[in-house]
Design a protein around this nucleic acid. Sequence first.
DNA 1: AAGGAACCCAACCGCCACCGA
DNA 2: GTCGGTGGCGGTTGGGTTCCT
Length: 363
Amino acid sequence: MGHHTCCNKQKVKRGLWSPEEDEKLIKYITTYGHGCWSSVPKLAGLQRCGKSCRLRWINYLRPDLKRGSFSHQEAALIIELHSILGNRWAQIAKHLPGRTDNEVKNFWNSSIKKKLLSHGTLSDFSMIFPNNLTTTSPNPSFDNFYPLNSTPINSIPISTNSPLILQVDHQMNNNHLNADLNLNPVVPSLINPLSFDSISNDPTWFNFNYPHPQHDLDYNQNVLKQDNSNSMLTSNISLNYTNGENFMDSRNAAIKTHQDLLMVPLLPKLSEMIKGNGGIVESSPPAASQQIESMVGSSLPCTFPNGYIHPHYGMNGVHEMEQIECMHMSSFPSSSPSSSKSSPSSCNTQFMMNPSLPTSWES
DNA sequence: AAGGAACCCAACCGCCACCGA
DNA sequence: GTCGGTGGCGGTTGGGTTCCT
């Protein structure tokens, strides 16, 4: 059986968690941390399996979880990531702050999959991501992914006042990049220049208090691991922030900053990816490896708003995960009240966002 | 209004990888 | 090298809710 030893030693309760159990678990973990999960139930006074406690915490009780409907951006990102990663939900969820693999998986199975199937196959992405936004729908769906009054993903405005972007610009300009600007004819057109001033003056273009969960160490460590290939980028950014603006002064904050930085590159428009792939995407779930292979050849430009190309993401031969790094979107602020109320600390980070975008993915 | 179908999603199951003894 | 313990992941289930007829 798949039960762990901790589940066999004692009689464990199964099924839905009661509010009292939740309270006990929250109280224990916020006080002591989870440590070894197998010991949590005993120490917390719960008749549960440690594995169950872990799952409950990760999928439901974590303070940084973003509850509620998926936004259109999140849905788009999930679709894109799924086209590359397949059913690796945990990997996909890592690119969606505040979302769990379970949530992403459920969302995919309940909403996206159904809609994709209802439209035949993924081969008809033009239907899903229409370029011509001339129609409106009261219920935006795959039929009309972006409502008329919203900004398509490929033109999400970016604040030029963002210290993040400026720092990157500076770093790349002066020190490390020999980026061939000619390689990136796309980016300038992706940024709506009219948006800059309006956004920088827009009260809704604010600094998010991005919840920085106490238990996010593992996550940060993962980011660190991923940073091995980008160490210079990470270190430079951390230095700039700590020295320049006293913006954040912890190591974790620097890591988080890098995480945020990686969210700066624009999400490549899916139709462009497909164009680069011969205009055809065969099918959704099993296509991962094939698509990776083909997409590598098709080049997925990883571009910064200033037009530079990430030094580690060449136009050809890019790694799968590196491609995904490029696809990070920055428009996922945690908007749930729960996420802001209980965060022990926060990372004050400016995200790109489009305030006019609808906030949820409507089914 | 009622019953069945469809949907949603929290939770469980089974497997695998990693780590330390 | 092996074995047990543990964390993590993806697939699946089951029960509650919503929708439809």
